[in-house]
Simulated assay, not measured.
Amino acid sequence: MLTTGFKLWFGLCVAMVAAAIFAGYTTGGTETGPISLGWKGGIGNHVVYTLLMIGAASMAVMGVVSQAFRDSDPEAAIELLGTEEAPEAQPEVDSSWWPIFAALGLSILVVGLVVHAAIFVIGVVIIFAIGIEWTMTNWSEKATSDPELNSELRERLMRPIEVPLIGALGIGVLVLAVSRILLSSSASGAVLVATIVGVLIFGTAFFISTRPSISRGLVQSILFLGIAGILIAGLISAVVGERDFHHKGPDHHDDSHAEVEH
Rank of each mutant, 00 (worst) to 15 (best):
F6N: 02
L12Y: 01
V14N: 10
A15T: 11
M16F: 13
I21S: 03
A23S: 09
G24M: 03
G24C: 05
T27C: 03
G28S: 07
T30Y: 05
T32K: 05
I35C: 02
S36R: 08
L37Q: 04
G38Q: 08
H46W: 07
H46V: 12
A57W: 05
M62L: 14
F69R: 06
D73V: 06
P74S: 07
A76S: 14
L80K: 15
L80I: 05
L81K: 10
G82F: 01
A86C: 10
P87K: 15
Q90A: 14
E92W: 04
E92D: 14
S96C: 09
W97N: 05
W97F: 12
W98Y: 12
I100G: 03
V110C: 09
G112V: 06
V114K: 09
V114P: 03
V115H: 00
H116I: 06
A118V: 15
G123L: 00
V124E: 01
I130Q: 01
E133P: 00
T137V: 09
W139E: 11
E148G: 04
L149C: 09
E152T: 08
E152C: 01
M158W: 06
R159F: 05
I161K: 07
L169W: 01
L174M: 12
L174Q: 08
L174F: 03
A177V: 06
V178L: 13
R180G: 03
S184M: 07
S184Q: 04
S185E: 07
A190G: 08
V199L: 15
F202I: 12
T204N: 07
T204M: 12
I208R: 03
P212Q: 09
I214L: 13
I214S: 04
S215R: 10
G217T: 09
I222R: 01
L223V: 15
A228Q: 04
G229W: 04
G229K: 05
I232L: 12
G234F: 00
V239L: 08
G241I: 07
H246N: 12
G249H: 07
H253M: 10
H253F: 11
E259L: 13
V260R: 12
V260F: 10
H262Q: 13
H262G: 15
H262T: 14
